Simulated assay, not measured.
Amino acid sequence: MGGGIGGEAGRHVREGRGKDRCGHGRAASGEDQATLAAPFEVVGPGLHTGRTCRVIVEPAPPDFGIRFRTLRQAADFTPATWRVRVPSRMSTALDLGAGGRLRTVEHLMASLASCGIDNAAVTVAGGEIPILDGSAGPWCGLIGRAGLRRQAAARHAIALLAPFEVSDAHGFVRGEPCDRCCVDVSTDRMPGFGVLRWSGAIDPETFRSAIAPSRSFGNASVLWRAALRSRLATRLLPPDLRHRLWLRSFHSQTVTGCTGPTPAEPRPECQHPISPWTLSRMTVTAPEPLLRGARPGRVAVVLGGRILGGARFPDEPVRHRVLDLLGDLALAGRPLRARIVANCPTHALTFAFVAELMARPELWRLEPAPAAPRASAA
């Protein structure tokens, strides 16, 4: 396996010390940090760019966190945190410095965090993490086969002390004090599906079996309109035909009545305003590729109230919302000990929740993470 860790970052990986990221020594009780027992490598196309990308995920020392670099950046690794998150349509993107920008990190981030990996060094040849089959299942399988290695450093979690909520026109995300990580997520804006809702505690086995297999979903009409905007369609189709096909694409978006569960409810008394700095990083202003790599086998294609080819779960779209939410929450840099309640969370809104929460240290504190079961080998 090529592309190993080198330079200053490589020395950090080889010579990591055993203090936690707060500067404290190892806790008398609680869980130790963990890294991979062996590296692994993935090659595949990106969802939005459609370009092939190579990813190498390697073990890292205690307190390294999850860090990324591109091959163009030589030895510099960038911590994957909310501070370097940049706006991106339908994905989570990181600014790695020196012109390096990496899209669609959320599935890998969710898998590492939910499988109990605290420290990993990720080297990427390309600008987007591969979409694989649209789910986090392949990532969990690779992590399981690589194995986990405990490290002599205490693992700390962010424990919420009071309810905290942010909202926008799409929905809301709220955190509530809890002794573990659990979620309650709904969506009521999926044409043809009504209201979908999933709740439960997040541990490695639950994530692997109930959340990770859910796929990115693309409305067939949205995918069709993206194809009509492509350079190939512009060259081959007359403008009037493209316009008629564009209008017809909206006719397939049937909407059924909202039956079954009710959406999660906001709590206005817990809402906090979103700062101008955070708002400036929620809106995409620069053009970027979109869904160029989307096709059956990489996304779950939704048409009306059906998933073409069959769903992996009856409520697969909302489970994938949970997956994306967990990947974006991982940008806090530590595990969250909280109950996360959300309706229609987007990448931008979850980023706003993390950024605004971190800016209010009176609402949280770092505590030793309690011992919990780790993901078993696949």
Rank of each mutant, 00 (worst) to 15 (best):
R321A: 14
R306E: 10
I307D: 00
A311F: 03
D324K: 14
L325W: 04
D315W: 03
A371V: 13
E367N: 05
L349M: 07
E356P: 05
P368N: 06
F351Y: 15
H320G: 11
A355D: 13
R319D: 14
R339M: 13
D324V: 10
R337E: 11
P314K: 03
N343W: 06
A338N: 13
L331A: 12
E362M: 08
A311N: 06
P368Y: 04
L363D: 07
V322S: 02
L366F: 10
L336P: 06
F353D: 01
V318G: 03
N343H: 14
G310M: 00
A369M: 14
D324A: 05
R337T: 10
P373R: 08
F351P: 04
R365S: 12
P373T: 04
A371I: 12
A372G: 08
E356I: 01
R365Q: 15
D328M: 12
A338G: 09
P314G: 01
G310L: 00
R306K: 03
A369V: 08
P368H: 04
P314L: 07
R360C: 04
R337M: 15
L329H: 11
N343P: 03
I340M: 10
P314Q: 07
P314V: 01
F353Y: 10
L323Y: 05
L363W: 07
I307V: 02
C344D: 14
P314D: 05
I307Y: 00
C344S: 15
L357P: 12
H320E: 10
P317E: 08
L366R: 11
L336I: 11
D324R: 12
V341R: 02
R334N: 10
D328H: 09
R360H: 04
D324F: 06
C344Y: 02
A338E: 08
P317V: 06
H347C: 05
L336Q: 09
F351W: 12
P317C: 03
